[in-house]
Write a protein that binds this DNA or RNA. Structure first.
Lengths: 206, 206
DNA sequence: ATCAAGGCGTGATAATTATCATAACGAGAC
DNA sequence: GTCTCGTTATGATAATTATCACGCCTTGAT
């Protein structure tokens, strides 16, 4: 019994871009992963601001934090692109995990990998400044998410700001500066990385 | 078979304050938790700086990130106080987890709780500025680690800086400012929180 | 069509933080 | 002992980032 086969007999749900999949405070009843699309995991912080924790791609678990240890979600999930999730009853998953060690360690490994990734990315972002952070997230979208030099940004400038921990104005300004320096091109919502090496250097040099 | 009983027949090691328990890059052969003392988990970032990921208390796992998913540690662990660790052979733990679902979910739950804690603390720190961050970490030491208003700081100012992502000078300056405002007292390495409410207000107001 | 709201973009200014310099002090090496 | 070296400490200055203010454009509601 693996995730794939379990999923086949479980419930799929579709979400339009912008729809909320999980609301902070919801009780955790299902174990969910993303089948297609792109979502953001985020948290409401004091003063009605939001902090984006990470983005999740197809086959990533959406049930990460708090699952198996809390009763209620301490983060929200919203679709950035039209998305399909696959959910299984959490109690069934827990029972299965208790009965089947291999299944349990499989899940464990996958969740750990995801949370490790979050922590390591936080550290990467933290050691950079504005320019380095913007370069880092552009490279992230280009290399990890879209695997292309030209892509349509699935997030607003505000959401970038919420991920890297800066203000919207500075995100916008920095993108403009990168454009003025000929490192990227901006066509409305799509971004083209023109000078990949220079962007990488900026990301490395903080 | 639970962690406690498994530990009883496994190897304990003692470390003096300052000794390194795990070195980034070491291959992961054991599953380790802290029996007594206090340690820091940290990572070397570019430019021989270090970033502290978290602190671990007795009964916390020291094997967190990368374990079960990587072959080598991507972080280091060093004792901040004299510490004793308890280690089990990782392959044995994996085998046991594969055979025993309850054991596996138990570990899973504990690791998840720890990594969740790290992520949530990162978010808390991230949304604050210098003063708020210093207040937050002082409250953390006071409430979580020592459960006292007066305690001996187990970390240097530099290490505080490495945790909250600021410079040493600003950490020192901010502690001085809090002292001048009568919120804390500093006797060499020990700190007394005089005005807990004010410190909490500073932590909340960022 | 018109209005309101929100995202994008830019400039001026203020606040925050980093960097550089310097000094006192204690611990460990020799 | 004495000499480093690292930590704590403080000030002056520079760099970075946030805040405020404004205008443009698009989208959705009425």
């Amino acid at each position: 019994m693996d995730i794939e086969s379990m999923c086949s007999r479980k419930s799929e749900k579709s979400y339009k871009k912008g729809e909320t999949i999980i609301q902070e405070g919801d009780s955790i009843k299902e174990f969910t992963y993303l089948k297609s699309g792109l979502v953001k995991l985020y948290r409401k912080s004091s003063g009605d601001r939001e902090q984006i924790i990470c983005f999740a791609l197809p086959l990533d678990f959406v049930s990460l934090l708090s699952i198996f240890s809390e009763e209620k979600y301490n983060y929200s999930v919203t679709a950035l692109l039209d998305s399909v999730t696959c959910s299984m009853d959490l109690n069934e998953v827990k029972m299965l995990a208790n009965q089947n060690g291999r299944f349990a360690t499989g899940i464990m490994q996958k969740i750990n990998r995801a949370t490790d990734r979050i922590i390591l990315d936080f550290l990467e972002v933290k050691q950079r400044r504005l320019f380095g952070r913007i370069a880092y997230i552009l490279l992230y979208f280009s290399k990890v998410i879209f695997k292309q030099q030209t892509f349509e940004l699935p997030v607003s400038r505000k959401e970038i700001a919420e991920y890297i921990g800066m203000t919207v104005e500075n995100v916008i300004r920095t993108l403009s500066d990168l454009r003025k320096d000929g490192i990227i091109k901006i066509y409305g919502p799509t971004i083209e990385i023109v000078d990949m090496e220079r962007l990488e250097r900026i990301s490395d040099l903080s």
